[in-house]
Design a protein around this nucleic acid. Structure first.
Lengths: 121, 121
DNA sequence: TGAAACCCTCACATCGATGTCAAGGTCAAG
DNA sequence: CTTGACCTTGACATCGATGTGAGGGTTTCA
């Protein structure tokens, strides 16, 4: 599909799809006339990118962890993994856990507040 | 305490502490000479702000949810809560839950990848 | 053939979170 | 009284994620 359709199907602007490409988060092909050509699998991929971005991760990190998250588990993904990459992944895993904890704590506080508010009236 | 100490104790730059004040996330007093004066409780508050910011929430929203999260639960917090505020809180609670789910899914994928990588060798 | 609806690249604008720097006031210690 | 380490306000800079628009090519359809 071309950029317009992907934009519509993912709820992302064309501008951003080009930006993600520039940031090497996606790598669409090109048809003869120069138009970008996207495969169906990119719908899920872009959605995942948006989720991670929305969760506060910068494109730099998304670029680094995304190749590891491609399903299904193919041993191709394991080739040429440097120790630095592993370190980065472990670090990012921990940072994400911290984010999850922060968010959970604060969300629960909101829930608690809303509950108290409801019990009040 | 003054801004330097708070900065050190929270790991936040002075610049940002002033910025948070400008965004009405904190409201320090002033001593006679014009210096900002911070109470001890602000250490926790600033930490919480940083967590939320780090989790991807904009100051606008933090400003809106923070007053509700002040412990302990005092009924003062319940006075003058508009229906719009409740709507905002509910919406934000849902958005946070989505963020938590996204983060958890992706973190677990990283964990799984690292595990597979370790089993490989 | 011409208009509409796509696509391209490039560049400048914006917005929020931050850094940095300048010009100056305050205070404690020598 | 001066120096150094604080503090003040204000402005401009930066960075990442986005918007927007200009100038131009392509495809489709009437």
């Amino acid at each position: 599909m071309r950029i317009g359709e992907l934009a519509e199907r993912t709820g992302t602007s064309r501008r951003l799809l080009r930006y993600y490409e520039e940031q090497r988060l996606i790598a669409p092909g090109r048809s003869a006339n120069g138009y970008r050509e996207y495969g169906d699998s990119l719908v899920g991929r872009v959605t995942q990118i948006r989720e991670l971005l929305d969760a506060g991760l910068p494109t730099r990190l998304i670029q680094q962890i995304l190749p590891c998250l491609d399903s299904p588990a193919s041993s191709i993904r394991f080739a040429g993994v440097t120790p630095e990459t592993v370190t980065i992944l472990e670090h990012e895993r921990d940072r994400m856990s911290e984010r999850i904890n922060s968010l959970t704590r604060n969300r629960d506080a909101i829930v608690e507040y809303l509950t108290a508010l409801r019990d009040e009236s």
